[in-house]
Design a protein around this nucleic acid. Structure first.
Length: 194
DNA sequence: CACCAGATCCTCT
DNA sequence: GAGGATCTGGTGG
């Protein structure tokens, strides 16, 4: 039986969830395919005082999913790409964790076809690339990812893995509040972005 | 309705 | 490390 991360796992501060999501397995169930990967890089976005967070300017139609309960997906468009956040903390608190990079484990040929490249290290080594490889789009915006019926969920033990070597830094790819030390990744992992 | 910024990616240099 | 491609939502007139 898969051990799907429950609401309680996500109902914590984003800096904690971002760190704890490293090493977990993200699963995408498609019509005729299951795609799986190991989360190797994340970024936290705070509900308060974080100018880079999408909830900073208040609730709008675009970021409405951010205000849902912990464990919901927030998918938004960035130029030609989609990006996936997982909502953290309580209902109404717009904090989240961005999935920045994933190590492909299953459905690799499928991912190669979607991405149009053969280099496994580059299939999901960035938030936009990951969403292409896992076929994540606006249809998944706002869904609850804490149960096995969902087309997207994350598996793993709720307690952290002490053997993981984790590094952190300021966030990348943004202009405001970039110095917040909320980017986490697995040290030395070849599937991390940049 | 027009304008513009933005949590990216890819191709050069 | 720089620049361009290219898309959507938010804001203001």
């Amino acid at each position: 039986m898969p051990n799907i991360l429950p609401t309680a796992f996500y109902n914590r501060p984003p800096e904690i969830v971002a760190r704890e999501l490293l090493g977990k397995i993200i699963v995408r169930k498609l019509e005729h395919q299951i795609v799986r990967g190991r989360i190797v890089e994340t970024e936290g976005y705070l509900a308060r005082g974080d100018e880079a967070a999408h909830g900073f300017g208040g609730k709008t139609k675009r970021n409405a999913s951010l205000y849902k309960d912990a464990g919901h997906a927030y998918v938004h468009g960035m130029r030609q790409y989609f990006l996936l956040d997982i909502v953290t903390e309580e209902i109404g608190v717009p904090s989240s964790v961005l999935i920045r990079a994933v190590e492909p484990l299953q459905g690799i040929e499928y991912m190669k076809a979607l991405r149009g490249i053969d280099v496994v290290e580059h299939l999901a080594s960035g938030p936009g690339k990951f969403c292409i490889a896992f076929e994540i789009n606006k249809e998944l915006d706002g869904i609850d990812i804490t149960n096995s019926r969902a087309p997207l969920y994350i598996e793993g033990e709720s307690d952290s893995d002490p053997s993981l070597r984790i590094e952190k830094s300021g966030r990348i790819g943004i202009s405001r509040a970039k110095d917040f030390p909320l980017r986490f990744w697995i040290k030395g992992n070849p599937y991390v972005s940049r």
